[in-house]
Every structure is written in C-alpha cells, then in structure tokens.
Design a protein around this nucleic acid. Sequence first.
DNA 1: CGATCCTTTGAGCGAACTCAACTCGGGTGG
DNA 2: CCACCCGAGTTGAGTTCGCTCAAAGGATCG
Lengths: 245, 245
Amino acid sequence: MVSSPLDVLVRKLESIGPLSKDEQKAIYALPLSIRSVPEHQDVVHDGDRPTQSCVVLEGFLCRYKQLPDGTRQIHSIHVPGDMPDLQSLHLNVMDHGLATLTASKVAFIPHAALRKLMSEQPRVSDALWRDILVDAAIFREWIVNVGAREAYARLAHLLCELFLKLRAVGLSQDFTFQLPITQAELADATGLSTVHVNRSVMHLRSAGLITWERGECKIENWDELKRVAMFDPTYLHLNGEAKAA
Amino acid sequence: MVSSPLDVLVRKLESIGPLSKDEQKAIYALPLSIRSVPEHQDVVHDGDRPTQSCVVLEGFLCRYKQLPDGTRQIHSIHVPGDMPDLQSLHLNVMDHGLATLTASKVAFIPHAALRKLMSEQPRVSDALWRDILVDAAIFREWIVNVGAREAYARLAHLLCELFLKLRAVGLSQDFTFQLPITQAELADATGLSTVHVNRSVMHLRSAGLITWERGECKIENWDELKRVAMFDPTYLHLNGEAKAA
DNA sequence: CGATCCTTTGAGCGAACTCAACTCGGGTGG
DNA sequence: CCACCCGAGTTGAGTTCGCTCAAAGGATCG
C-alpha cells in the first residue's frame, strides 16, 4: 500500500465513483509542488490567470467574493481532497478569491499535466468533471441555504454538509470533526452577522444538537440536526457506502 | 446561411468562445426532439434520471428546489441558448427541478448523441464545459446576491445579469428585453417576499433606473443600475465584443 | 362581464442587524 | 512569573429591513 500526498484526492474522487488501480497510479504520478500556507491568506487572487490548479491536502480553504461595500461572501468551504480552482482549467480568469481559513497544505498541479492526465485517462477525466459538477450542486444548495432557510437552520445545514464532506474522505469518526474556523467566518459563509451566528450556535448547543469546543465539533443528534436543517444529502451525489449514516 | 433551431445555442456558445464552421455543423447535426411546454410546468423533475439534455429555444425556464416547509428557491433563470440540465450527462440523478416560467420551446438531445459529439469535436466539448463552468460561476454570484446584497441591490443585480445574458444571444436591443415573469417568481429567485420585491421594483422605477410594463423591461440608466447592484460582469466570462456595453 | 391572477399599498410584527460592552483563554514580553 | 494584550466568543439593548396579513386596484381572458 503506497502512501501519497494525493491519497486524499483519490479518496475524494472515489466517494463519487470508483477508480481502477491504474487510474489511481496515473493520479499519483502527477507532478506536484506542495506548499504550506498560513491561515487567512490568499492562495489564488480574484483576477488571477492561473496556470495550475490546486488540491487541498490539509486544512480548510474558502472561495469568496468581496463587494465594493466591504462585505465578504464566502461561497464554498473546502476540505482535504477538494480541488477548489479546477475550473481555471477552462475559465482563464478567476472571478473570485481562494483563501485559507486555517493553516493549510496545498498541492499545485500544472494545467498541462492535468490536461494530459484527462486525455489519457478518460475515466479520471470523468471523475474530475463529476467533482466539478458536484461542486456546482453544492453552490445551488448554498443559494437555497442563504435564500430560503432561517439562521438556525442555515447553520445546521452548513454543519450537516461539512460533516458529510469530511467523513467522505475519512476525516470524521463518531460524528466528530475538526472545525477550526471562527464564527465570523461562518457569518461570511451564511450571510449572517457574527452576533447572530453566535446566538444560533448557542441555540444549536442548548438544543443538544452539537457541541463545539476548541475547534472540535461533535454532532450529538444527527437525525434532529438534519431535520431542523431540512437537509437532503442527494445534492452531494455521494455513492452508497459513503452515504450510509 | 442556414437557419436551425439550434442557432441560438451556437450564438450562446460563441458568446463564450468562437466555433469553426465545421464545429457549428456538427452541432446543427444533433438529433433533436422539440417540445412546446406551457408555462409553470416541470420539464425535468427533482429525482429524475434523464437520458437526454435540453436546450432552451424560446421562453424562460428556471431551476429550483422546494423545501419541506414549502418555500421554493429558484437558483437559476434560463433563457434561449442555455442548456439547463447539461450536468445530467455526468450526474445521474437530478437534485433539483427544471420548470418553465413562461410558455417555452425546448429541444431535447439524447445523452448518447451529446457524448458522441463531445468525443468527436473536442473544441465543442470544451465549449460545452465552459458553458457549465460559467453556469457554476453564476451560481456563485447568486450566493453573493442573496447572501450579501440588500433587496434593492439584489433585484438590480438580477436585472443586470438577465440583460447581459439576453443580449449575448441577440435578444435585447437598446437596453430593452422581454421579462414576462411575475414578481412572485422574482421573489423566489431572490429569497425575498413578493411584497418586498414589489416595493423594490417600484423603487427601481421611481429612481429612473428601469421601466417594466407588460412583460417588457427597459434599463433606463445602465451605469447607475450597475452601480447600485455592485455589478461586475467578470463572472459571466463573456468574450470581448459581447462584453462591451 | 365575472373570474382570476397579478400588482400595489397599508399596518403591524419579527428576525436579524448594529453598536457596545464584558468575558475568557492563550500568547508575549517586561 | 505575572501583567497585559489581543482575538474570539458572549450578552444586552435598541433599530431596521424585510416579513406577514389583509385588502384594494388593474389587467387579462374565457
């Protein structure tokens, strides 16, 4: 059993659909440049024209836009295994920023190597495309989240999603996962104020749905959390085994 | 000059990047089944497993989700030239519905024919992928819209986007375009109540930014509308000529 | 020429916001 | 080793944006 920095990427892709040993090997053979990035720092800037795409190896990243009036809206949170700027392969210019939420380790892969891989390994290509499409499905659900759910349910939904994403790559046991981000960042992700995020988190705690201390979050009542979140995991398009709760 | 029902699709794809005559011919050669759909009717249901994808030829469609509590959130509005369920090519199950907002004409293309086209015409394949990626970019902007903009700016932004999308396929002259949808539908798209949409629309009118009568909308002050909307068209990834305002 | 759907307006309410202060824990330097 | 400092979390009070409920005008169409 080989161990590669890209194991987590393979696990992620396999959470959507299986890959053969050969296909996995082709992924492991990708040329990488690995970089450690401190917290709260841009990995890719809005307006950049990247020539490589990145894979999250460790830590949490987010994609965001900053409006002229100063508000920042986070529109996705990325965990190990994600490729948050894969779209730069086809869209030349970044229409948003990509930043670390926590100190992270990120692998960069030149576009040329990715294109070569995708043309030589059509099933890997399919897997990457599916990944992008699931990403888009998550965006859709986030529109629903910020547009249609009240604060309490909105927070609950975000936690449901993060939990399943992390578990799919083996980063959660017993309904427990690392959540080393601030409430202000949750606020930017949910379109709420920090104060109101705090009140909603307190409410989730007092309702016995979660605990969250020192960056570790535990879901204490998964069924009830899903219910108040109106959470339907279909949009994550996880395969069977990953889906079973 | 041939005229094909898919002209509008070619125009749409060319608004993102050019296509050769051969590539256009390959698109025109796609097998179609064209269907007229009355207003307010599902074209594809949530949970479906489509074996074909569709192209909007005439009318307005939307993608939406319905929550258990009854609220409907629209997460995209589609105009002629759009392929609103292209993702079903790679994601088997629909995680949302696709419905007409107005009486529409829709062309269905079997997945098999699309796959064949995409394998034989790599540049058409690229164009379709770019289309999907622009779609995802629009989702991201909608997250920002419902999450970070106040009602007035939110409506303004939606109008800016619709205008540019319609103009890109030749469906707008002189800042005028058909907008035959109800305020209740705008409410579902913006995460606002109908009443508040109405007040915001009235405000846009009284500020001299738009007129909107009998399904026809005219932008009276494009610069100011863009400004109040905090509208930056980068995310639409339109090519140069289409971008020029 | 009702019937119906959409828009418009009024009034009161409530969820979420802002501003501000206080707490707590961890880090840092004197 | 302790004082302090800073960022994050927490809590209170007042405000506001957007919501609900309700009803009155248009438009459109059998």
